[in-house]
Computed example of a mutant assay.
Amino acid sequence: MQATITASRPGRTLASLDPLRQDALLAAALAALASGIAVTVGSGRHPDALGWALLLGLHVPLAWRRRAPFTVLAVMITLIAAYHQLDYNHSAPTAASMVVLYTVAVSSGPRRTALIGGAVVVLMLLLKIDEGVAGLTVSFQITGWVVSMLVLGGYIRVHRENAAAAVERAERAERTREEEARRRVAEERLRIARDLHDLLAHTITLIGVQTSVAAHVLEADPERLDRTAVAKALDDIAGTCRTARGELRTTLEVLRDPGTPDAARGPLPGLEGLAELAKSAAATVELTVRADGVPPAVGAAAYRIVQEALTNAVRHGGRTDLTVRVGVYEEQGGLCVRVTDDGVGGAGDGPPGFGLVGMRERARSVGGTVDAGPRSDGRGYEVSGVLPLGESAGGQG
């Protein structure tokens, strides 16, 4: 058994038609209204064949009133003037004339609307001046309608302009919010990349060095294995893994709750721990810290810069002597960070990585700068940076 399903099409409403068809229907409706008025009420004689041609013909241009309002006005005014001069029913074309005046006011600025309204009133007075006082009285009455239509059209125009401006402002605000959201996402991705690089690069480098130490101990003299040295190397590796796990947990907590306030000042985070980790990789570290309290963001940036500098020194310099100095100095305008080594340091022979870029991004994130390169005496490498503290720097040195 076959079933036939018929989909009912929704009826077409006036609002769904294009503007030309809407205005054509409006012109037809106004023409029908004018025809009824012409044979029933109003002053003047009933239209003859010429009168009907003028009355119905002046409604035709209304179909294009929104496309060419001034042309439509000129044509209709000419036909209406001829219609009134022949003394046909004077009330019949009133509705059509009001509609075209409203259209002109909606489409024009205030000055042009006022000029057109004044011209229409003057033309009407000229047509009615021969009728004496009665004609002037009717002219004043019609002038009231003309002014009313022009004011109404001007009000609608201003309302539409304000509505369009409000929509544009809302769209612009939405675009601004979207751009801000994209910018924040990009900044957050960059921050995550920096955190992961700083953490993983430092940890993997130290584990690699410590593993090499353990392997060297095992291979140096297999017959006389130094169990104590091997155990210490493995303990160092385990300690480095625990430190990395703790830092990773801290990083994830910050990423999950990025709204933690940074208003308070506190001690620099964990520089002693970084020095100890570098020492476990067979480097000697001289650490000097002269900062009692700094903003958390500045402290975190200093920590990451020192961490990356030590990582590069251990990776490229091997058994090197390192000097780390961090302090607040008024003449330098903030927290100064300086890491030097006596090896090849951050230079290296391999391809450039993200370490120096990451250090500079860390410094820029708090308004500071970082420079890195060979020392002036040619003995090793140096990383130096200045991180502003704001108006009040804690812990003057």
Rank of each mutant, 00 (worst) to 15 (best):
T284I: 10
A229T: 08
G154R: 14
E219V: 05
E168K: 08
Y381T: 12
P19D: 04
L127T: 02
A283N: 10
I192P: 04
G36I: 09
S384E: 09
A313W: 12
Y83E: 03
H216E: 13
S280A: 15
G394P: 03
R157T: 00
R224D: 09
K128A: 11
G109H: 03
A231V: 08
T103F: 00
R177G: 03
L123K: 00
A302C: 11
H46Y: 14
L136E: 01
L225A: 06
G346T: 05
T176Q: 15
L387C: 09
M1V: 06
G397A: 15
A3W: 00
H316I: 05
V133G: 01
L17V: 07
V213L: 12
I116W: 02
L56I: 09
T211Y: 04
Q307F: 05
S97C: 05
W64V: 14
A282S: 11
A81S: 07
G317W: 00
E174G: 02
E391L: 09
A372T: 10
D262V: 07
D198M: 12
V72E: 00
T137P: 03
H159D: 12
L252M: 14
A300M: 04
G385A: 14
T240A: 10
L101T: 01
S43G: 05
E247G: 15
Y303E: 15
I305Y: 01
L115S: 15
G327L: 01
R184Q: 13
V217N: 05
L206Y: 11
L268K: 10
D257A: 11
R338K: 13
L26D: 02
A27Y: 10
V314G: 07
I207R: 07
V146W: 01
A31M: 14
I142S: 03
A283W: 05
D130P: 10
L322V: 15
A31I: 06
T94S: 01
P351I: 04
P19F: 00
N89K: 08
V337A: 07
A263S: 14
L73Y: 06
A173N: 14
V151C: 00
R21W: 06
